[in-house]
Computed example of a mutant assay.
Amino acid sequence: MQSKNKTVVRSMDILNLFLTHSKLSFNEMVLFSGIPKTSVYRMVISLEEMGFLDKDKDGKYSLGLLFLQFGHLVAERLDIRQIALPIMQKLHHEVGEAVNLIVQDGKEAIYIEKLDTKQPVRLYTAIGRRSPLYAGACSRVILAFLPHDEREQYLEQIELKPIASGTITDKERLRLLLEETQRSGYTVSHSELENYSSAIAAPIFNYNGQVIAGISIAGLDVNYQQEALPQLVEKVKHAAFEISQNFGYIQN
């Protein structure tokens, strides 16, 4: 940690504010970051000059076009995204719900691709957004299929914090759900990341049988009542299996 350049770390703290805010004024960046005003000023000027930040006519800042260029490069180089996208599009056409692709990043999951729902509904999901591995179907399905020791270490260390009304905050209940997910090959969430939304997720495996991603459909919880689940579950599981096959996975 001591080897990290302080200015670089603080600059990242400024840029990270834009993960949850589309635009910010200079004073808002000072307020939200807790960094002294003079330091923020110097960093913002430098970030703007390098193309990392843009300022509009009202004096509000947003992420610069340079991030869009970098984002496209990263997305294009993620093989799993390229392989999964046609199958995600097919699933999206069949169910009309949002379709998400998530990979693990440390103790979190990150959305690397999504197709929006055809309904006017706000969902937690967005490309680049993160969620804890314990919350939400697509994140939790990855957690369920991690090696036992890795999963248990995570469960022992993590604090289960509520995010929405349905977030699971009891570790024993979570363990039972993870075991059920291993047996069934899918998981369902209701209001875990966003109230009144639901999701169904299945794991994606590589040729070694290791979980490398999760795929889910998500939308309004009224579309995920008990009678609708069997057909939706099969479609999600089939899509996950198709993607897994492209990575050499053979089901035992």
Rank of each mutant, 00 (worst) to 15 (best):
A109C: 08
Y124C: 09
I87Q: 08
D58C: 01
A75E: 15
D149R: 09
L160G: 02
A135H: 01
K171S: 03
E94Y: 11
K90Q: 10
R130F: 03
V103M: 11
P147W: 06
F32V: 08
V103Q: 13
E150D: 07
D54K: 09
T117L: 01
E152Y: 01
V30M: 11
V141F: 00
F52V: 02
N100C: 14
T167V: 07
Y41L: 12
L143H: 06
D170P: 06
A144C: 06
M43G: 00
R42V: 04
S165Q: 14
K60C: 11
T38E: 15
I45Y: 08
E97I: 07
R151V: 03
S39G: 08
I110W: 02
G96D: 02
K161S: 04
V103W: 13
K23N: 07
D149E: 08
L101W: 01
Y134V: 03
L78D: 04
Q153A: 08
L68H: 11
L160Q: 00
L155I: 07
V74S: 11
L91A: 02
D58K: 08
P147Q: 09
Y134C: 01
R122E: 15
E159R: 13
K57N: 12
R42C: 02
R130H: 14
S25H: 05
F26G: 01
L24A: 00
L143P: 02
Q153P: 02
F32Q: 11
S131I: 07
V30K: 08
F70K: 14
Q104T: 05
S39A: 14
V40C: 06
T117K: 04
L143E: 00
Y124Q: 10
Q157K: 13
A164L: 08
V44G: 02
G136Q: 00
Q89W: 04
